[in-house]
Amino acid sequence: MIDPYYLQQLAIGLSLGMTYALMAIGFTLIFGVLNVVNFAHGEVYTIGAFAGLVAITAFAPPFLAVLFLALAAGAAAGFSLERIAFRPFRRFTDEASLKSRAMRESTLLSSLAVSIVVREALEIVFGSEMQPLPFEYMINAPVQAGPVTLATGDLIIFGVAAAMLAGLQYMLKRTRIGLSIRAVSNNPLGARYVGINTDRTIVMTFVVGSTMGAAAGILVGLYYGAIFPAMGFIPGVKAFVAMVMGGLSSIPGAVISALILGVSESMATTFLASGWADMVAYGFLILTLVFFPSGLFGAGRERV
């Protein structure tokens, strides 16, 4: 018989992992089409949480409306982010410049700069401390499932994330925009030749990825009641770790890695003080980079 405590940690780890997975998908999609790392992805997560918070304090809508507002804010953030931090550096349309080192480096730095501006702007408006949340919106009521005590949040996060993953899979496999995203990430120049509007596809990728990131933000915010301007940094790093572990361009790989990461962290708190839990993610990252240069699940891109 397994100690119920471990089952409980497992469940918590899975829901935590799901939020990393939602973030990691944004990274993976964007890396797929542009071959760049979007350093402002963590801020999209923050924006999702704050959009929900603002909606709650302004007109106390039902829970689902809060969620949709947060998603809409995420989509808008993704759209603006692409316009501000990425498009200005995509001056040429041949493949060389689309995936060139110069563009990678300047967009890396520009997304970093945008993330600083967003975080600091939120701090000016809201202050740097945690925001108070009305109790009735918190999703941490205990739920008894056999010997295990879970929170409603665990179930909601798992449910919403699973639904979004299914939706994403449907979109990528069945819809026109999904097909063009896949086409552009396979071969941007070829996609252009067959008449796909790469610029539009790239914007859509940012919108889709950011929507999922914002969902993670509001769900985590409501679960832990911790909404503050710098909240996006740590989950952003972890989602990145999941992407690298998953082999960079594989969405299933990123999701599985995110779940592994979430569970390991939740288990690690058994043996470690909670302050050290983040060490797990960084340790995973270094180990993956050094020993599994193409991710844990096979083929990836050259990196050494």
């Binding site: 790392v37 080192r101 990678r104 890396l108 790093v237 990145f240 770790v241 690298v244 003080a273 302050g275 050290w276 983040d278 060490m279 960084y282 340790g283 990252l285 270094i286 980079l289 050094v290 990196r303 050494v304």
Partner: peptide, 28 residues
């Protein structure tokens, strides 16, 4: 020693992780 083989963004991310690990040590 272990991370110098990494190129471009992987090196950058490895340094980020190393920086954060050292920071966690200082903090915890």
């Amino acid at each position: 020693l272990p991370t110098m083989r990494l190129v471009s963004i992987y090196f950058a991310v490895a340094t980020l992780a190393i920086g954060q690990m050292l920071y966690l040590v200082m903090l915890n």
